[in-house]
Design a protein around this nucleic acid. Structure first.
Lengths: 92, 92
DNA sequence: TATCATTGTTATCGAACGCTAACAATACTA
DNA sequence: TAGTATTGTTAGCGTTCGATAACAATGATA
């Protein structure tokens, strides 16, 4: 599931919570936030704090990943001419 | 890259920014936040707003995903991280 | 329908956010 | 080394967060 907005995250959290058979109060208890805050998160409120969001994802066992470093592994590094790259980068 | 804490996210953002050859002010301009806020995000401040974080990831073309569907790579990415290569070459 | 559980909504309040501005502290380069 | 660019840090200020509490609204079940 690709997350583009707070709303995407909110619906994913809600789906996961229901899949675990928990109500908002139970999740709030695990995370250490108020029940209302869980509701706001699920509704896609943009202002929620990142730290609390990550704690919520962990409490629900939802892995979060950035897909930026998984493509550099396939092409072999030995085929890269480092000097040429550096020189090109230095050129104006 | 699996994100477990605001600090994980911060270092990933910084790496991506440098890979794009941008300074904090340029990213702040794209996102519509202050330069100091970008600095705080990169330092792993937990209280940053989710909405601004997502806008930053979008501005840097960093895809964010939940769950286990991250094995598929996202296209709009150069497969060679030039800065990473240069940094590695410069490192003692 | 009646009853209970779950969720949504509102108001208040202390705490923290993010912004601007200014200056210090590091890089980076000629 | 000197000079510039980038980043780190601090203070003040208006705004918004998150907690609590209370009540309304919705959902589920007998």
């Amino acid at each position: 599931m690709i997350i583009r907005s707070p709303r995407d995250l909110g619906s994913a959290v809600r789906a996961r919570r229901k899949a675990l058979g928990l109500d908002q109060a139970a999740v709030a208890d695990r995370v250490g936030v108020s029940r209302q805050w869980i509701g706001a998160l699920e509704h896609g409120k943009a202002g929620v704090e990142l730290g609390l969001v990550l704690r919520t994802l962990k409490a629900l066992d939802i892995p979060l990943s950035l897909g930026d470093d998984l493509l550099v592994s396939s092409p072999p590094f030995s085929s890269v001419d480092i000097d040429a790259i550096v020189d090109a980068a230095k050129a104006p």
